[in-house]
Design a protein around this nucleic acid. Sequence first.
DNA 1: ACCTGAACACCGTTCAAGT
DNA 2: ACCTGAACACCGTTCAAGT
Lengths: 209, 209
Amino acid sequence: MAGQHARKRYHHGDLRSALIQAGTQLLKKQGVVGLSLRAAAKRSGVSHTAPYRHFHNKEALLAAIAAVGFDELTAAMQEVTTKHPRDPSKQLIEAGVAYVLLAVRNPERAQLMFGGSIDFEAADEALRQSSRRAFDGLVQIVEHGLQAGIYREGDVRKLALSAWAIVHGLATLIIADRLKEAASSEEQVVQLTRYICQIHQSGLLRHKK
Amino acid sequence: MAGQHARKRYHHGDLRSALIQAGTQLLKKQGVVGLSLRAAAKRSGVSHTAPYRHFHNKEALLAAIAAVGFDELTAAMQEVTTKHPRDPSKQLIEAGVAYVLLAVRNPERAQLMFGGSIDFEAADEALRQSSRRAFDGLVQIVEHGLQAGIYREGDVRKLALSAWAIVHGLATLIIADRLKEAASSEEQVVQLTRYICQIHQSGLLRHKK
DNA sequence: ACCTGAACACCGTTCAAGT
DNA sequence: ACCTGAACACCGTTCAAGT
């Protein structure tokens, strides 16, 4: 009879986590539009003003949900790096694949992370760090390539930015459903991402003219 | 004394255009969040239900605003092509610059165009065409390069997609304020875009190993 | 044809009050 | 400390009714 998501104690216990979880579920099921503070509160069995004890406003909840995504992304990058040690070329390609896969597997959350609904300048320090760590993972991979002498000379961060831009663009285009025919199955997405990343990496390489 | 945006006739005359214009202004001033059907109606001097005579729902107004952006993008691409005839390499770089500049000069609208708030699959045929034409402009530029024999062999659309992804990603990152230090002035944006596009294009070129 | 006003079911946010 | 309920100023959308 009791609400399935409600807790019975007056003090919830861990409302903050419950709201993040409820928000993530709402996001997955109803999209960014269906993610409201009031709905997350209801789902957590709490009044619609309770969230304000834990989040300054709606954007703070969105930021917390996005931060989880950036942490997962950072973890995925590190996994790729350790999985292919001493092969910076493969690291870069597979980091790209990981980036795009994370997006297509949770497009609603990716839209939150990448879609511009969150003002990163004004955001929580926690979110800023989470998102920066993800980019730093990419910078390190490019750094490996530079140290191995396979890439052209240049500012590491700018070279890494070019890699970031191409996977970010691809991920964004896919989740915006702009590439329906070219990237419908996950397998197609992986193949396409590898192809695109290889073109890019070939631009990064030292070449004899 | 009369509302500055109001018209006096019972029939507005061109409410559809007025709403698109009002919406575009609201978007520029208040961001996507401030763009409501009710606010656009008020600004056009009309009741809050009048827009439904011209737009099936809110998303249809958003789509109409975005379509203007895609048409401008297509025009910018064509301008680049005619400005640098018989130089597909320069065409590709400058098309990238045009793409990114269009975004940074109207970031709110770009967020609408690229941010995933619009479901392109379900959208108006007009919007679908507008956005496809913009991509086709890029495909043509890559096609020129292939015909000139400067690029590696490959599926035109996939090669063009790689170019699309990198400028799209760069534009998206910039308007999401994720590149504050590297791209604050418009001049910096142009330089950075050229640099990134050159790396990418170098990956597209035929190379002697 | 085109527009209005009332109504409905939602929002985010604030604030005095309760436990 | 943490939570509630009422209140405010908004939304998008529908629908009978007006010109």
